[in-house]
């Protein structure tokens, strides 16, 4: 399947939104639920409950979605061509991973205009770990002509819990991929809507101001006292909700608790960007968030979607 049937402004090699739509269409055709971005600040698509919680337990789950990723420390006031504090990941999660996941992935590259007969696609060892989520897996960086275009992981453990069955996770770094497809050197130069002339909207027009504003906030002005407070409050509330949700063999309030875990994680990321957490403390903060994630994961297994038997 290629993109030649699309009108020019919708083609993934000309349009950032066209790229997103092409990936959504492709994975929808594979039977995925197309979710929308989670409405909270997260550092990566993996943190979306659609991956983090749904990858636990025995129930099959196939989903795809775009997730804005907030990495406060990666902000460069919009001046670095490749670094942003807010960027998009396209995330696919298939549980259990189908036996032909590699072929499906290659099919998705074709769908966005990367012909594997023309481009050198490679699977290069890269084992993935996320200490704050207590998660790890084995897989690859997927290279296209020497450039990393995706991360491909078979989850082995999430929230400190063995995955049974294992999910396959694909993460496409959309901006980088789009730069390659559109042949531009800087993310800000990306054509966002695929139009030309007066109708053309660039990534710069959409996001440059936001990058500048958030970089000021992240590095200079975020209220650290409030953030420390928010971290502690979120941690407390997460634990409280996990306690209150206990109902015999079942759990009734995992997702609200998990939201608090995400809030604590984001507060930590901001504090980290402000440089107010020492190295020693840093470890203990990561461990605290991980403990919340683990507790949420354990509680998830006691819910219906987590596979608990009535």
């Amino acid at each position: 399947m290629s993109s030649s049937h699309l009108p020019p402004h919708m083609r993934p090699e000309r349009s950032f939104q066209g790229l997103i739509l092409a990936l959504q269409t492709f994975w929808a055709e594979q039977g995925c639920v197309i979710l929308q971005p989670y409405d909270m600040e997260v550092g990566a698509g993996t943190s979306h409950p659609g991956t983090m919680l749904r990858s636990l337990g025995p129930r099959p789950w196939n989903a795809a979605y775009v997730q804005p990723s907030r990495r406060p420390k990666d902000g460069r006031y919009g001046e670095n061509p490749n670094r942003l504090q807010h960027y998009y990941q396209f995330q696919v999660i298939l549980k259990p991973n189908p036996p032909n996941l590699q072929e499906l992935y290659l099919g998705s590259l074709e769908a966005i205009g990367l012909d594997p007969k023309l481009h050198d696609i490679r699977f290069v060892e890269d084992d993935w770990e996320n200490p704050t989520l207590g998660a790890w897996g084995l897989g690859w960086e997927c290279w296209c002509d020497g450039m990393e275009v995706s991360q491909f992981t078979y989850f082995q453990q999430v929230a400190g819990i063995e995955c049974a069955p294992v999910s396959g996770e694909l993460t496409y770094g959309l901006e980088r991929l789009a730069c390659y497809l559109q042949n531009v050197e800087s993310i800000m130069e990306l054509n966002f809507n695929g139009r030309e002339g007066a109708e053309k909207v660039t990534y710069r027009e959409v996001f440059l101001q936001a990058e500048q504003e958030y970089s000021r906030y992240n590095f200079e002005h975020a209220d650290t006292a409030a953030l420390f407070r928010r971290f502690a409050e979120a941690e407390t509330e997460c634990r409280a909700l996990l306690g209150k949700g206990e109902s015999g063999e079942r759990h009734l309030m995992v997702q609200p608790a998990y939201d608090q875990c995400l809030k604590a994680g984001h507060a930590f990321n901001l504090l980290d960007a402000r440089g107010v957490i020492s190295v020693t403390e840093r470890q203990s903060y990561i461990l605290r968030v991980r403990e919340l994630a683990k507790a949420c994961g354990a509680a998830w297994l006691k819910t219906e979607a987590g596979g608990a038997v009535a």
Binding site: P96, N97, G137, Q156, P165
Partner: peptide, 9 residues
Amino acid sequence: SMRWGAASV
């Protein structure tokens, strides 16, 4: 090493 697929239940 790793597990994978439906068998990894």
